[in-house]
Structures are given as C-alpha cells and as structure tokens.
C-alpha cells in the first residue's frame, strides 16, 4: 500500500489536532537516536503509532496508521548498544 504524501495543510492539521507537546518531547529526547535503537510505540489520541522521530511521523503518518496491524511489539525499552 502506497501512502499518499502529506500536504502542508495536512501537517498543519496534525499540529492542530494532536498533542504537539508530546511530539516535541519525542523529538527533543530521541533526536540523536543513538542511545535508543528500534522503534518506539507511543499512543496519541488513543491510537498507537510507531515512530522514532517527529519528522517520521509527519511524513509517514498514513503508512503508520495503515501498518498498525503489523506492529510486532509494544514498547521496547532501554539501551541496545
């Protein structure tokens, strides 16, 4: 399944309707992505989304929503270095 690309208006709507502070916390805390490898599962608005970075969420939210059935695991914690 090929997700349709998000437009600028779509992205603005995401900022307007989701918990922006959580998105920013994820971006701030995981932005380097070195200590944490693998995906992080978080719930936003009652919907579980997989993402490691804010940018990934914004660019691939359609795909992520479609792929929920394929999510293999709940939050995987800790360092994997």
């Amino acid at each position: 399944m090929s997700p349709k690309p998000l437009t600028g208006d779509d992205a603005r709507a995401i900022f307007a309707t989701t918990d922006t502070s959580l998105l920013e916390v994820v971006d701030n805390l995981l932005t380097k992505g070195v200590v944490l490898t693998g995906d992080v599962v978080l719930g936003i608005g009652g919907v579980d989304l997989i993402y490691a970075r804010l940018s990934v969420l914004l660019c691939t939210v359609d795909r992520l929503l479609a792929a929920q059935d394929d999510v293999p695991a709940r939050p995987r914690g800790g360092r994997r270095a």
Binding site: L22, L42, G78
Partner: peptide, 15 residues
C-alpha cells in the same frame, strides 16, 4: 540499575 523502558510516561517523566 537498569535503563528505563521507553514509553510515553517515561519520556514525559524525563522531560
């Protein structure tokens, strides 16, 4: 002794 699990709660707690 162990690294915290990654979850919305722990990320928010760290922040």
């Amino acid at each position: 002794t162990d690294p915290p699990a990654v979850s919305e709660a722990t990320l928010r707690a760290h922040d």
